[in-house]
Design a protein around this nucleic acid. Sequence first.
DNA 1: AAAAAATGCCCAGCCACACCGAGGAAAATT
DNA 2: AATTTTCCTCGGTGTGGCTGGGCATTTTTT
Lengths: 218, 218
Amino acid sequence: MPSHTEENYLKTIYKLAEAEPGQDVSTNRIAAALTTRAASVTDMLRRLAEKELLRYEKYRGVQLTPEGRRLALLTVRKHRLWEVFLVQQLGFNWDEVHEVAEELEHVQSPLLMQRLDEFLDFPTFDPHGDPIPAEDGAVRRPTHRLLADLEVGDRGTLAAVKDTSAPFPQYLDKVGLALGVQLKVLDKVSFDNSLELRVNRERTVLISAEVGRNLFVT
Amino acid sequence: MPSHTEENYLKTIYKLAEAEPGQDVSTNRIAAALTTRAASVTDMLRRLAEKELLRYEKYRGVQLTPEGRRLALLTVRKHRLWEVFLVQQLGFNWDEVHEVAEELEHVQSPLLMQRLDEFLDFPTFDPHGDPIPAEDGAVRRPTHRLLADLEVGDRGTLAAVKDTSAPFPQYLDKVGLALGVQLKVLDKVSFDNSLELRVNRERTVLISAEVGRNLFVT
DNA sequence: AAAAAATGCCCAGCCACACCGAGGAAAATT
DNA sequence: AATTTTCCTCGGTGTGGCTGGGCATTTTTT
């Protein structure tokens, strides 16, 4: 049974590996992601390697073993299922749930998660639009594209955000964007790549390229 | 923010104090309840006293401060609310929920508990028949009597069990008793105080005095 | 009241977990 | 080949929690 911290390391490593497939994950990247020092990370990597949850060749970075990957995905699954519960059943806002889910994800009870999954009617995406790994570890890779990659005239539905830390969802709220809205790219300003969007065929919104790189559409 | 273990100590002390009001709670009783050693308990008591969560006079036992009591009740509240959720919403059996609730009770989020409470429609008793402390710490003391204290001819409704560890609820199931059934005492065997009961005006059941002392009726 | 038994305290120490700074080794970059 | 960057190792810190053994206190017994 991994400790909370171990679960967090595994989850972080999984996400970093996901972000840049093929490459091994480096110590410093992990340290940055967990706001801790490289020395602490090395420490933990040794322990996780000992438990066969990842392969660790020094100076070479790190790679999850099947078992490590399984645990990481399980944690992600739990996190996202709880987020669905919090938003759909308890009426949380989708930008309020992260911290709470961060705690709930460490509860150990396969039966609980199975029942919760059923109770929520087997959701496949969480409130941020991220896929919920299945019990067997299968992840439905959504057909998302970066909003920033769309061309003038392209359409899509806002499906997910990349950076889900608090300020960003709040910003979205403010400019009137939300998951599920219909978008059409009206213009792409060439000099800074900012985007002019039509939202739900009603309003027009101007967003920076920065923001565009944080949003996924289908 | 108390640690999980601290919360467990507080909860245990609260329950022991409850069981025998007036008296202070002794080190060994706590040790027995938590299956640890007296030395460990002394240790923790010192720490909790330092944090002003209880008053600790050596050789004299221990007493929760208002703040300690508040935290203990909060933990009990969380535990029991989660139990209601598990049974009512997720379809757990009432004798399966304890361990899971034991984990969930340590999640720290007042907002979460408030929303959950609302979602469950402000329940006042948990699936074992025990009262759920209100947010302000008020406990509705149920008008329970020990089944063993009833006299021949008395009637009542089975309202709660004292020992909720796994085997006992299973035993109840087997003999056909459940919370909510109507009971009438047909006979009380004088030599061992075992009880003959009519259940829901249908069946007859014979239980030992031991069992009778573990059941509450209204 | 003294002796015996039970209870409970205190000390010193142990273990697990997680973190960290400093210095040097390895790898990447130039 | 030299420099910069990365990151490993080592020794050490702190916290939380548990424990055995010896001693102090309280309670019970006589």
